[in-house]
Write a protein that binds this DNA or RNA. Structure first.
Length: 535
RNA sequence: GCGGGCGUAGCUCAGUGGUAGAGCGUCAGCCUUCCAAGCUGAACGUCGAGGGUUCGAGUCCCUUCGCCCGCUCCA
């Protein structure tokens, strides 16, 4: 999470995270996983309303990214944006993760210092020892080369031992009782090296030998890259185009924290958008757009999209990465970030949009031995018959990678509203498109024929809208209490059958956010709701 | 992984080593013509889990799990 400064945004009034968590439990949005067994660190389940909310957000992404990409808006090349979906497996060939860098980069053993709470990569820790050999009972001084600790420890070590040589910590026998950690001033504080496996693993087959070891994917992206060639070989697509996938990923986080924000099992919604490398654009026909054009297009549209599903406040920001923050293969990356109650005044990442060059496909090409070049028959030299010779290249990629569970959490936080001026202060202001409950129908009182009319209206609305979300009805207790319950669940519209309904064929519709009411003809209710849900 | 705080009803929380509590919510009935209203009643707990001390543990001790905060980590 970034504590990025926000010079142009005044700090928003913070919302109490505790109250949001309590509401989410109380109304069945989010439960702790395996709660009856004491819970499991880093895992959260969704209850009925949470499941619907999450499904609605995933569905909104699916509709707007896959089915009608970018709302039908043309890309920077003026043409419709082309996206195809895939659904790849959580478990891939282990070499996929070697190619992606996940195996090498995240299996480093670390040692901790019990005194200073510092953590060091085991293979980076070196130790000054007497050049003569035996140090007797004297302490040994550990350091990290090119860090301040090197000079500091060298000075102390020379004083203690005279001429020095240095060895790796790993060459000394454990426990390192006489070793003084790089930033400590007493010996014996280093823990034994610990492996930090950020990827979960399992075994294929029943014998569970090391050669059968597989990993649970830490991102959905690599399944896309691994199938990119199949997709372009079998689908008559042409670069630029994208492949999209939503699915579950796993990261064995060191410290799961902040409610569902950093869960060990989570769902991603990713696009790998393949574009023509810059070297194939020059003097080329047909003119198309550069990777950076596409990068900016996706970055800006993804920002708009998050606003469109209800994150319109200044709690949402776009943050372009600094040069020194970029991965070595990326020329541009930005994060779409939300100011969560627990991160404020800092922000937490919802989606990263990265221009990754050809890094991923090139890696897979190298590790698999399979050429991952796209044969672009619209480019290259024009032949006498008017066709093109074609060129082959490894496409560059723009990756908009969003966290679904983080999106849900941001929506929950943004929707949570406490208004002390209302009889029931807590309400969830979900965008109607995301609201788990789309509408409720009440009889004002449970007699005089009102329940019958309400049930008929409820049945009709259910027939028309239940595919999108719940349509509720409730006749118990006072009308205020029923409105309040719907407010808390984030239901945007309540239709109430009253005395006038029986004579004038009208009902009241109450707006969740304002509490305002208007009368609508009974027959016009479906059209009213349809309009409000943006259908 | 380290340090600190916390864990009692669905939620928020009281609870002095001596019978397990309140408010809200939930449910039922009555009442009720628009905002958690009123009246009556009901259900709901292995006090996070395991062990120990004690005649007796929600309370004291140990272990463990989980949540929150700060470090650390965050491809």
């Amino acid at each position: 999470m970034h504590d990025s400064p926000t010079p142009h945004h005044p700090p928003a009034p913070s919302k109490p995270m505790d109250a949001i968590v309590a509401l989410c439990k109380r109304r069945g949005f989010i439960y702790q996983a395996s709660e009856i067994y004491g819970g499991l660190n880093g895992f959260w389940d969704y209850g009925p309303l949470g499941t619907l909310l999450k499904r609605n957000l995933r569905e909104a992404w699916w509709q707007d990214v896959v089915m009608l990409p970018c709302w039908g808006r043309p890309g920077p090349d003026g043409k419709p944006v082309s996206i195809l979906p895939v659904d790849t497996r959580i478990i891939q060939h282990p070499k996929v993760w070697e190619a992606s860098g996940h195996v090498a980069g995240f299996n480093d053993p670390m040692v901790d210092c019990r005194l200073t709470k510092q953590r060091y990569r085991y293979d980076h820790v070196q130790v000054f020892v007497p050049a003569s050999g035996d140090a007797g009972d004297k302490p040994l001084f550990a350091y990290i080369s090119d860090q301040p600790s090197e000079a500091k420890q060298r000075k102390k070590a020379e004083k203690a031992h005279g001429p020095l040589s240095s060895v790796l910590l790993s060459s000394l026998p454990q426990p390192w009782a006489r070793v003084i950690a790089p930033d400590a001033d007493a010996p014996g504080s280093l823990t034994e090296p610990r492996q930090f496996n950020l990827m979960f693993h399992s075994f294929v087959g029943a014998t569970a030998s090391e050669s059968d070891k597989v990993y649970l994917r830490p991102e959905t992206a690599q399944g896309i890259f691994a199938q990119a060639k199949n997709v372009w070989d079998t689908n008559r697509v042409r670069v630029p185009f994208g492949i999209a996938q939503a699915g579950t990923s796993f990261r064995n986080e060191v410290t799961p924290r902040n409610y569902t924000f950093r869960s060990r099992e989570f769902e991603q919604m990713e696009v790998e958008f393949f574009v023509v490398p810059p070297e194939h654009l020059e003097g080329d026909e047909p003119a198309t757009s550069s990777p950076l054009d596409w990068y900016r297009f996706w970055r800006d549209w993804r920002m708009e999209w998050w606003k469109s599903v209800g994150l319109g406040s200044d709690n949402l920001q776009l943050r372009e990465h600094d040069k020194d923050e970029l991965a070595h293969y990326s020329q541009a990356t930005s994060d779409i970030e939300y100011r969560f109650p627990f991160s404020a005044p800092g922000f937490g990442e919802l989606e990263g949009v990265a221009y990754r060059g050809s890094f991923d496909l090139t890696q897979h090409q190298k590790h698999s031995g399979t050429k991952l070049e796209f044969r672009d028959t619209a480019r290259g030299q024009t032949l006498p018959n008017g066709s093109r010779r074609g060129v082959a290249y490894v496409p560059h990629v723009i990756e908009p990678s969003a966290g679904l569970d983080r999106g849900v959490l941001a929506i929950l936080c943004e929707a949570y509203t406490r208004d002390e001026s209302r009889p029931s202060p807590e309400l969830m202001k979900f965008h109607p498109r995301l609201a788990p409950i789309k509408a409720a129908v009440f009889p004002l009182i449970e007699k005089d024929g009102m329940p019958e009319v309400a049930l008929r209206l409820h049945a009709e609305l259910s027939r028309r809208f239940a595919r999108l979300g719940l349509i509720e009805t409730d006749a118990k207790q006072s009308i205020g209490k029923r409105y309040a319950r719907m407010d808390e669940a984030g239901c945007p519209f309540c239709f109430t059958v009253d005395g006038d309904t029986l004579t004038a064929q009208t009902v009241t519709v109450r707006d969740r956010d304002s509490g305002a009411q208007q009368r609508v003809h009974l027959d016009a209710v479906p059209a009213f709701l349809s309009d409000k849900l943006g259908l």
